[in-house]
Design a protein around this nucleic acid. Structure first.
Lengths: 342, 342
DNA sequence: TTTAAAATTGGGAACGTTCCCTATAAAAAT
DNA sequence: ATTTTTATAGGGAACGTTCCCAATTTTAAA
């Protein structure tokens, strides 16, 4: 019936002491006798007292909570990165609250707002595929809330970032295809507004140029990363007068979707068409044929992003300078791109 | 330098009116003239005022935030369920904060505590594999914080729950194996403390009994769901004098892990050993051979759990009675359990 | 007009903490 | 014994809101 959570004042009244003293006992402040502290602690335990972090945060202007806003958790990339981030933040005594934008710009904005309204101490984020306007993040920055971006970062924001050498990784992937003897290498790219799409596309172009391959616009096609939409882009490639003999896909989910469609159509991988992805999602080694991919140190990305955030939070805001960490990718050659087998 | 977030008081001072009036303008309270409201709204916009939800929550004893505590987001089951839950909660104006227990009991307890300290309005949870002591959840309940469990629920807690008919689903899976002609059907079970492990095991036993198959203890082996540990349990089965010709696995990740090992060892699926999983994870239809599995309405589970939570929050606490929703599973037969091919 | 009603505003308590400052009590130094 | 130091405790402001109640102004009714 009465659903009153015991407060510090309840304890004070019951013990006939002041709330200041109770506070000291509970926080372990030195100015208190062992005796009183013991009494307070015992009663607190008995009443199942639980501190109200809201009140604390209000006065301290600190909530000891961090927010992570990511496109979607079903993508192994993001859930692994989050896991890495959580590891670091929880070790530092912060609680990490995770929000999904569901690849929606509006949801992303709403998430960021909800976190800010709750006086979060910092945010880690990776942009939704729809996001081009980054005013909501500028806002956060303007308010002095530390912000770190990873993976899908914005070039227009002066914040700490964690990325991989996408361009170089893409270069190696395409170089591998060239060296494996493929002649007509297509690129199934991601949304043009995402920096990683651009970088990976550039890596693809670099490789073609380096090996004196012609660059053909018709071999480059992009899509918006929506589940099921890779099919449309793929069809554009398959309907070409001269069908490609290899496809470098923007990421693993895309490559896997492509592979499913090719298999249904009786197109042999890697004999008719080779496939390379990006990320090394867990499923990539499970499927048949296993997928050649550019592995990223995903968990480490999350860890590094979290560490940068903590450093910024705990450091001197005056002398803070944003930092971009570029982690290394690693090409993992599997069966989807090696004709003789592996 | 001065990093002061504008408050309602700043606006009041600048406009020469009282904070009450500003509050009314901002919240859309009727007792205010259109004129003043307009002035307040304009200044608020200009100052980029953002409300401090913490202060509101403190006085209202409501935070408009919900918490979800799940074992791990990398498992498609949980990220999908969360997605369903988020859909419902955000539509109702709540922000859902997601926490991972990482399958650790202590982390689960810490997560629940962190959420409660932040005066969360309700919690959705699925137990970690280690959890046997549910005192932390009883605590939540005792404090009057609405709690809904899904998937991995506890029998000892009188809260609303969302589950599937695990026992029946398991029965159908094993029945399918029996009808497909398999004679020595093993069960690779989950941790014994989890109710779903028990239910699925019972479904397995039900099927054997129904079809007058002998129940052999050596064909039932369990493991703790740790990544990579299915191998150990599988070896116990493979080392039997009479190796099983079919394995019903506690879930899809387990079945997939088993499949990888069997493939490496040159054991043919489904000819030498058939495999059935539980959940219909996305990877299950991708792998070779595709995995027969018991599909659950995962997203719906999340939605229903969220709805139950909202109902409880918004309803009358006096007349609340916990409710258990049992959703239906559906057997999906794929190649891993059909000898002739499909 | 005068009064009553309605609309609009302001004042201040409350939410649960921490922390600064002061007050008291006990211990140590003179 | 007296003063000084130290240990411990209490009082009250502050954090940013909302909301109740009273005060004021405006409008409507008498």
């Amino acid at each position: 019936m009465k659903n009153h959570q015991p407060t510090i004042i309840d304890i004070a009244k019951e013990l006939g002491i002041s709330k200041s003293t109770v506070s000291r006992a509970l926080t372990g402040h030195p100015n208190i006798s062992k005796e009183t502290q013991k009494r307070v602690l015992e009663l607190a335990k008995k009443l199942d007292y639980q501190k109200n972090t809201l009140a604390l945060s209000l006065v301290k202007h600190q909530s000891f909570s961090l927010g992570a806003v990511v496109p979607e958790l079903i993508a192994p990339f993001f859930s692994l990165a989050i896991t890495g981030a959580q590891e670091v933040t929880s070790r530092a005594g912060y609680t990490l609250f995770i929000c999904q934008s569901n690849e929606s710009y509006l949801t992303e904005v709403a998430n960021v707002k909800a976190l800010a309204e709750r006086q979060i101490d910092g945010i880690i984020t990776s942009l939704s595929k729809e996001t081009t306007d980054i005013e909501h993040l500028r806002n956060i920055q303007r308010k002095g809330i530390p912000l770190v971006m990873f993976n899908r970062v914005s070039a227009d924001l002066e914040v700490s970032k964690v990325v991989v050498n996408d361009r170089e990784g893409a270069f190696q992937a395409v170089e591998h295809l060239i060296l494996a003897g493929y002649k007509r290498i297509a690129h199934l790219a991601g949304p043009k507004n995402l920096l990683i799409s651009q970088n990976r596309l550039n890596g693809y172009l670099d490789a073609l140029r380096t090996y004196n391959f012609p660059i053909e616009d018709e071999l480059i096609t992009s899509y918006d990363l929506s589940k099921g939409q890779a099919r449309v882009a793929l069809m554009r490639l398959l309907d070409l007068p001269q069908v490609p003999d290899a496809i470098f896909c923007i990421n693993d989910p895309t490559a896997i979707e492509v592979m499913q469609i090719l298999k249904v159509r009786g197109i042999k991988i890697p004999d008719d068409i080779a496939l390379v992805g990006f990320s090394d999602d867990p499923a990539s080694s499970l499927i048949e044929p296993s997928l050649t991919t550019v592995a990223q140190p995903i968990i480490e990305m999350g860890q590094v992003a979290a560490q940068l955030l903590l450093d910024q939070i705990q450091g001197d805001a005056e002398k803070f300078v944003p930092e971009t960490k570029v982690l290394k990718t690693k090409l993992i050659v599997r069966r989807s791109s090696v004709k003789g087998g592996i």
